[in-house]
Design a protein around this nucleic acid. Structure first.
Length: 440
RNA sequence: CGGAGCGUAGCGCAGCCUGGUAGCGCAUCUGCUUUGGGAGCAGAGGGCCGGAGGUUCGAAUCCUCUCGCUCCGACCA
């Protein structure tokens, strides 16, 4: 993409309403624009990052055999009356009436809809296990939206639902989801710690929240510092293996890690003092096992091997996709701007032409641009008639992993500069070596 | 939902108290000079001062109502 033809409305000054760093940087980098309280338009740069996160979430879900679907945002109140949640959910649910005076709602979550789909089409235990998920916009009418996309009213969420014959099967699905989430967050460049949590209006016995440690987090968390040494890494795992999935769950949840909702002072104090940590965290996902809470009232039954009709065991699992954009920035930025992990960066490399209009610089930039694009690196070429300082400031702000700086002075000496955003480390080398390094 | 604020140009703000027909910086456009970390000079465009009523000869300014947004708290997958 040529910056001169892109739409990147960066701001020099910080809008007054933005309190936390991710919100400020998203506004300044031209990623979002507030439409109303807690509701945002995603501008090109923000949208690209959002889509890249979505892609990773999809890949990790499908790797585990989970099947993508897409359910609507607007739902009928009737299904929610069946589950009993229409009255329970309270004012956080946006209620709508259509022209025929039917009660509708903008979905805050999808247990009812997915259960309806399941019961309409599945009647035999032979179709199990089944996990369906989607990535769709949700609306929760928060009393007080704040912090930009971190706590919006409208937000993009991946929500998945597993259907299993027995509790044991459903618990395996729970463990399997925990593994997919660990992998997903690590690919996003985040350390997200699973913590025992409260189930809230979803209900159920077993639930873990995933929290990213950040000063601006909304939750207070308490944990054994040994847990931050754990990484899932690139290990191979058989998602169908109950033993392997349970081992991962045990590895990642055996040490103390809880939010203030479930914090237990006595257990916490049993940890050696030097490992006792309290911090703030951003909740980026949660997994639940809730058994037959929805399948029983809504009649999601299958016939088992013995010919009996039994309610299926279910769980649900969510990742706050739009919130993750903010969470990643909270976890990865500096005083100059955003520092994107390579996996979600909106462009792979930025090309800065120090002297637009200089024949040698223009030619070298065009050459680099064409080659990097051909190599699939999705370069952003700053070909604007701007001074070097302005171009550097823009690149630093939007946080691309690499910056290729090309100018007449360097070209005369046969070099260009390659700078790593994360460290600021710059090396001077020939254009050919720089391209080779980037495309390696 | 309790408390506190704020709505004036794309962004950041002044003007309001003490009414007289709107201003500054950044951004934008034009020209010239500049050109390796957010350039300088000169000029230009852009506003029904959130909305509706009211008071007044006259309202951004005073009064009433209303809408929107933000912050603190409570609440909250």
């Amino acid at each position: 993409m040529r910056l001169s033809r892109y739409f990147l409305p960066v701001l020099k000054e910080t809008p007054a309403e933005a309190q936390i760093v991710s919100h400020r940087l998203m506004l300044r980098a031209g990623m979002i624009r507030q439409a109303s309280a807690g509701i945002y338009s995603w501008l090109p740069l923000g949208y690209k990052v959002l889509r890249r996160i979505e892609d990773i979430v999809h890949e990790e879900q499908q790797r585990a055999g989970h099947i993508p679907v897409l359910m609507p945002t607007i739902q009928s109140a009737d299904l929610w009356r069946e589950s009993g949640r229409y009255d329970d959910y309270g004012q956080e649910m946006l209620r709508i009436r259509d022209r025929h005076e039917r009660d509708m709602l903008y979905g805050p979550t999808n247990e009812e809809l997915i259960t309806d789909i399941f019961r309409a089409h599945v009647g035999s235990y032979k179709a199990l296990p089944l996990t369906l998920y989607h990535i769709q916009w949700k609306f929760r009418d928060e009393v007080r939206p704040r912090f930009g996309v971190m706590r919006g009213r409208e937000f993009l969420m991946k929500d998945g639902y597993n259907f299993d014959l027995t509790k044991e099967d459903a618990l395996h699905a729970y463990n399997r989801h925990l593994v997919t989430y660990l992998r997903t967050y690590e690919r996003l460049g985040l350390q997200a710690i699973p913590m025992r949590a409260d189930s809230g209006p979803i209900g159920g016995d077993d639930t873990h929240e995933f929290l990213v440690l950040a000063e601006t987090g909304e939750s207070e968390v308490f944990y054994d510092s040994a847990i931050t040494d754990l990484t899932f890494g690139d290990r191979a795992i058989d998602y169908d293996s109950r033993e392997e999935c349970r081992a991962v769950l045990e590895e990642f949840t055996s040490r103390y890690a809880r939010t203030d909702e479930t914090h237990d002072e006595a257990l916490f104090n049993a940890i050696p003092e030097e490992r006792r940590k309290s911090a703030r965290g951003i909740e980026v996902g949660q997994i639940f096992y809730f058994g037959t809470k929805y399948s029983e009232p809504m009649g999601a039954m299958v016939t088992n091997e013995a010919g009996e009709r039994v309610p299926v065991h279910m769980g649900s699992h969510g990742i706050g996709v739009s919130r993750l954009v903010g969470a990643i920035i909270e976890a990865s930025h500096d005083e100059k701007g955003i520092v994107w992990p390579e996996s979600v960066a909106p462009f792979g490399v930025g090309i800065v032409n120090l002297k637009q209009g200089d024949a040698a610089a223009d030619a070298a930039c065009e050459d680099a641009y064409a080659k990097l694009a051909a190599a699939g690196l999705d370069p952003l070429y700053d070909d604007r008639e701007e001074r070097a300082g302005a171009k550097f400031a823009t690149m630093d702000l939007i946080g691309l992993p690499w910056r290729l700086t090309i100018g007449p002075r360097g070209l005369a000496a046969g070099t260009v500069e390659l700078t790593r955003r994360k460290t600021g480390e710059t090396q001077e080398l020939s254009l050919e070596s720089a391209l080779a390094k980037l495309t390696a």
